[in-house]
Design a protein around this nucleic acid. Structure first.
Length: 469
RNA sequence: GGUCCCAUCGUCUAGUGGUUAGGACGCUGGCCUCUCACGCCGGAAACCGGGGUUCAAGCCCCCGUGGGACUACCA
């Protein structure tokens, strides 16, 4: 499978953030390339001067970096390459394979509408095809498409697809402003950059025959194509903002781990037997385009959440601290004690689906004053439990084995001594220490908080009981 | 409208002519248990329809139906 001649590319247009669909396309390209030991090129398709922004370019690069999708060449900027594009346009004109056209957009639009209304196909009628026009300020350049014959694409994912050339249009390859259009620029750039495998979204399938014809007209070798299926929203419509977050970086902000997103995305449309969890190394070894499915997939946030929780619970401790810290910092907490943050994260990891959730549910670790949940307090911060709390606070200084196991033994013994059950003491303590009836194991919480903080919190809870009467 | 693509549990999918149609998320019953999670054991849940081909079809062929993409001087 190793083939270091393989050259792939990811070519986003910088008109917005990197979205989920683009990320998966980039991921498939990346995996395929790494699997082959080839070269992954990044090219920014910014020929649409009006919509492209530097901010978008930076956001796309950031997102790819966050996901771990490094590129070997680039980023190249398509707009900087217009010289080459124009040269190639001129070459086609000189060879009679392209021609100037002065049909106005308005006239074209009218013809399209009329054709549609009459049930005919809205195809360029070839008005300027043989007029032998020369360049003028309002002229565009059209590619002369053969009107007979068949173009067949052997897609790496979808298999052979054939198109009858008769259906193809004399598409515009250079606009009146002198900039190339997508279908032309992409061919010139891919050819010139020696791209061997074009892996992209399957919304490009219908563009492919036109592009293949341009490769041939240019005298360039046609690359191999692999069209990956779209990602849909829950209503089966193409994934968009109204289905929720679609920007990759939005997931970082919501407390997702890049490993989770990568793992989720790769399984959308690709599978390897029954395996659900993959490391990057495993993916690189197992990935293949043949195993990519042909049908569109619906984005399922629940499964992403499950994977995220899986990665949070299994992340190496040091990395977990690293990614979790900013979320507490953002809430204004003191995160200077790395060991303390690490313990808090360790206590919370199995019960957090996202880092945001982890930061929220673990706020009590960082707050001196406990925020008592009214219902919890009403139930457990009562005179009935004050004695238990008092006993715990009094005995803590003398506990030698202040560990999870040691505390469990201590609390059980105390419960027996006081003629109650562990659960009642645990719940009262839980509310005293965390303010809630739901938290990590009470012994773990006590260990993480440390004797002093625990005693202070218990005292404050007792005061609260006395005050509340 | 035309061209092209697609079709197994609600969702992601395994399956390449003979399977009790498997796994995962979610849902759900139970166990574990100081709460909540985690974990473990169990359950409900699918081959879009109709014709062929074949001894045998989820798998092959045809026709429907449904969904999607494209049909720009956007990419």
């Amino acid at each position: 499978m190793t083939n270091d001649k393989v050259r792939t590319r990811f070519a986003p247009s910088p008109t917005g953030f990197l979205h989920i669909g683009g990320a998966r396309t980039a991921l498939f390209n990346w995996l395929y390339t790494r699997r082959c030991g080839g070269t992954f090129v990044l090219r920014i398709e910014d020929t649409d001067q009006a919509r492209s922004t530097d901010e978008s370019t930076r956001a796309i690069l950031d997102a790819m970096t966050w996901l771990g999708l490094n590129w070997d060449e680039g980023p190249y900027f398509q707009a900087e390459r217009v010289g080459i594009h124009r040269e190639m346009v001129q070459k086609l004109i000189d060879e009679g394979k392209a021609y100037y056209c002065t049909c106005s957009p308005g006239a074209l639009e009218a013809k399209r509408k009329k054709a549609l209304a009459e049930g005919r196909k809205p195809k360029y009628d070839g008005t300027c095809r043989d007029r032998g026009l020369i360049r003028s300020p309002e002229s565009v350049v059209r590619f002369r498409c053969p009107d007979v014959g068949v173009t067949v694409m052997r897609d790496l994912i979808k298999g052979a697809i054939s198109f009858s050339n008769e259906e193809l249009d004399d598409l515009i390859i250079e606009r009146a402003d002198g900039y190339p259009t997508y279908n032309f620029a992409v061919v010139v750039d891919d050819a010139q950059m020696g791209i061997t495998h074009v892996i992209r979204g399957d919304d490009h399938v219908n563009n492919t025959p036109k592009q293949m014809l341009i490769y041939e007209a240019l005298g360039c070798e046609v690359p191999l194509f692999g069209h990956v299926p779209m990602i849909l929203g829950s209503d089966k419509a193409r994934l968009s903002k109204r289905h929720g977050a679609t920007s990759v970086m939005a997931y970082q902000e919501m407390g997702y781990l890049p490993e989770a997103l990568v793992n989720y995305l790769v399984r959308l449309g690709w599978s390897h037997g029954d395996q659900e969890i993959f490391t990057m190394e495993e993916l690189i070894r197992a990935f293949s385009l043949e195993a990519v499915g042909k049908s569109a997939a619906v984005f399922n946030p629940e499964k992403l959440l499950w994977l995220n929780q899986h990665y949070i619970t299994t992340y190496p401790a040091e990395k977990l601290v690293e990614v979790a810290t900013p979320f507490w910092e953002r809430k204004g907490f003191d995160v200077s004690d790395g060991g303390f943050v690490a313990q808090a994260a360790a206590n919370l990891r199995t019960r957090s689906k996202t880092l945001v959730e982890m930061a929220d549910s673990g706020s009590f670790f960082f707050r001196e004053e406990v925020d008592y949940d009214p219902e919890a307090a009403a139930k457990f911060l009562t005179p009935e439990y004050a004695g238990h709390l008092e006993a715990v606070a009094e005995r803590i200084p003398d506990i030698v084995d202040y560990t999870k196991d040691g505390l469990e033994i201590f609390l059980r013994a105390l419960a027996e001594e006081r003629g109650t059950k562990l659960k009642w003491i645990a719940q009262a303590l839980r509310v005293a220490l965390t303010g809630k009836t739901v938290s990590p194991g009470i012994d773990e919480v006590m260990v993480t908080l440390g004797k002093e903080r625990v005693i202070r919190k218990i005292r404050r809870a007792i005061d609260q009981i006395k005050a509340g009467g």
